[in-house]
Design a binder for these strands. Structure first.
Length: 559
RNA sequence: GCGCCUGUAGCUCAGGUGGAUAGAGCAACUGCCUUCUAAGCAGUGGGCCAGGGGUUCGAAUCCCUUCAGGCGCACCA
């Protein structure tokens, strides 16, 4: 739909360019959008208005010339009308025949029709969640997982080769702290009254890991110093946590292609190697006994330390190595999804990638804002310190993975989200995921009915011999138009990395369908009409299914 | 103090790479089940797009500024 308009307008523009004497360097990329109000037309372009200045002519006059040229070239055959309106919009309204033909194309090859190829097989890497393996995933990580997963699905459908990756911070002091916490709990449980580490982890999971160790090894380490047996506790605890995180993500329906260990980067020598490259470029220097990276040269506020004066690497050092590794793997675009509280970290990492020669546009950080959980309309207090936070596991068990994912995707990523657990549990109109799934299930039910009644004609595939011109109710035309908008919507979501656009679209489409369903019967005594309506139902179902698939949410046949 | 994000209907939020009369869901009120799932539908009301200035043919959208909220400003991760 969009491409046809662009082609037609482009052709007209080409003819007009000669007589217009358009100044060089004026951009003539044609912006196409859906009009705000359906009565204005099906699709519109603002081209005339954006050319007005360069041509020194009123926009409406330019629009008129474009429309006349389209008509003169006979390219207006798919339109019922083309109008110049408002300040200079060119509004196109399609003929019914065009709508039917498009619907037919959708039905005969869903993926080809719905999935706009903008990726061309280019490689994209999306790193998300990447929570420290020092505790269970909480609800905020769940939001990151939902967004990363949906974005991966969208980009993959848009023709990118996508790799989903989880970065494991298993090298730093946090893992050591985890080990110390478990060690302390272990000693205490066995009667050795040692002090619990000052900033140790306090969650119940610390206790259960320690109990597990006691069960497996008895009092083997009772009284042994942490220096001697610390590695055991660290490894045991973080591997346990990592396994639990992997389980949670699996049950949430999010699968990663690669789990990259930070420790491994050190062991392979990647950290030293990447620093050596920066040193060769003259971007590292010593000052106050520490080693600095000249990130300010690339837009950071100040330079950053990579090796502290005590000889230890900073967290930033391994991040340099990790992102260098991403570049070496020849990704066209690198996307990092972080909690919004890490936003201050963006300039320094951007500096690294710039230093290594990646164009700015090829690195994208998506920030995930906080989730506050509401129960009985009141916020549930969560604090990291006391470990009173709602885990992703609890959310999955309480409301289900589908609902949680959908709700996480009902907001822009960088906007705060109130997650109302009572609404999420409620199976009603208030709960948007059921509303959309219900539309899908209803259609499935219609097809079961049609099957039972032995309706001939459309059986769920193929439109041969079916006359779609029977679809002439206003609701039917609206639905067809909405369906045809999906590719544009999808393309926009992919280009802007915004999965939530699909969530909104699905709710709108479901609304149109529920409304139609209540007003008109699909299965009627008129077989030709029934067949045409079943075609429409199938198309709605296909688009709902496709959209839900992008969000990582299931489309149930029955509810 | 500096930086980033946010401020849109009673509530929760879309719209934000400038475009037409600013939308949705919820809440409130009124109707609709002998017919394909009422987890549904139809209707009604609801707005100085935080305030002020600017750029533009045109601003919720871009720029400046004020106010309010959140989050960052380590040789922590």
């Amino acid at each position: 739909m969009k491409q046809e308009i662009i082609d037609i307008v482009q052709a007209a523009l080409k003819r007009l360019e000669k007589q217009w004497e358009l100044p060089e360097g004026i951009k003539t990329n044609i912006e196409v959008e859906i009009p705000r109000n359906e009565s204005l037309g099906d699709i519109t372009t603002t081209l005339a208005m954006s050319l007005a200045k360069a041509l020194k002519k009123p926009p409406r006059e330019i629009a008129g010339e474009i429309v006349n040229t389209i008509k003169a070239a006979g390219r207006d055959n798919i339109f019922e009308k083309i109008e110049v309106a408002g300040a200079g919009f060119i509004n196109f309204t399609f003929k019914r025949e065009y709508l039917y033909q498009s619907l037919e194309r959708l039905l005969s090859n869903e993926y080809l029709f719905l999935r706009v190829d903008i990726g061309n097989g280019r490689k994209v890497q999306i790193e998300f969640v990447s929570a420290n393996p020092t505790g269970p995933l909480h609800i905020g990580h769940g939001r990151g997982a939902a967004v990363g997963n949906a974005l991966s699905n969208i980009l993959q459908a848009a023709g990118y080769k996508v790799q989903k990756e989880y970065y494991i911070n298993d090298a730093g002091v946090q893992v050591k702290m985890l080990g110390q916490s478990v060690y302390a709990k272990y000693q205490q449980a066995l009667g050795n009254d040692i002090k619990f580490p000052e900033s140790g982890y306090h969650g119940a999971y610390i206790e259960s890991i320690s109990e597990e160790i006691i069960k497996n090894t008895g009092n083997k380490y009772l009284g042994t110093s942490f220096d001697e047996c610390g590695n055991f506790f660290m490894n045991y605890a973080y591997k346990k946590m990592l396994a639990q995180i992997a389980d949670d993500l699996r049950d949430f329906g999010v699968a990663f292609d690669k789990w990259q260990s930070e420790k491994e980067l050190y062991e392979k020598g990647d950290v030293d190697d990447s620093l050596a490259v920066l040193r060769q470029m003259g971007l590292l220097y010593k000052q106050d006994d520490a080693l600095w990276f000249a990130s300010a040269k690339f837009g950071d506020d100040k330079d950053r330390v990579v090796i502290k004066k005590d000889g230890e690497y900073t967290y930033f050092a391994s991040d340099i190595a990790y992102h260098k590794d991403k570049l070496d793997r020849k990704f066209d675009t690198i996307i990092d999804i972080w909690g919004a509280d890490h936003h201050g970290y963006i300039p320094r990492l951007r500096s690294v990638l710039k230093a290594f020669g990646l164009p700015e546009k090829k690195f994208k950080v998506i920030l995930i804002q906080m989730v506050s959980l509401l129960r009985h309309g009141k916020p549930v207090q969560m604090s990291k310190r006391s470990c009173e936070f709602i885990t992703l596991r609890e959310v999955i068990e309480e409301v289900g993975a589908d609902t949680a994912k959908f709700i996480f995707l009902t907001r822009r990523a960088d906007s705060h989200l109130d997650f109302d657990i009572d609404i999420a549990k409620e199976q009603s109109a208030e709960n948007p995921v059921f509303y959309v799934q219900y539309a899908f299930a209803r259609i499935a039910s219609i097809f079961r009915q049609a099957e039972e009644k032995g309706v001939q004609g459309f059986k769920g595939s193929g439109v041969q011999g079916i006359n779609l011109a029977f679809l002439k109710e206003a609701e039917e035309i609206s639905i067809i138009k909405k369906l045809l908008q999906y590719p544009m919507l999808f393309e926009g979501a992919a280009l802007s990395f915004e999965p939530h656009r699909i969530t909104f679209y699905l709710q709108e489409l479901a609304k149109l369908f529920h409304s139609y369903y209540n007003k008109h019967r699909v299965i009627t005594d008129n077989e030709a009409l029934t067949s045409a309506r079943l075609c429409l139902c199938r198309a709605v179902q296909a688009v709902l299914e496709e959209g839900l698939k992008m969000l990582g949410v299931s489309a149930p046949e029955r509810m």
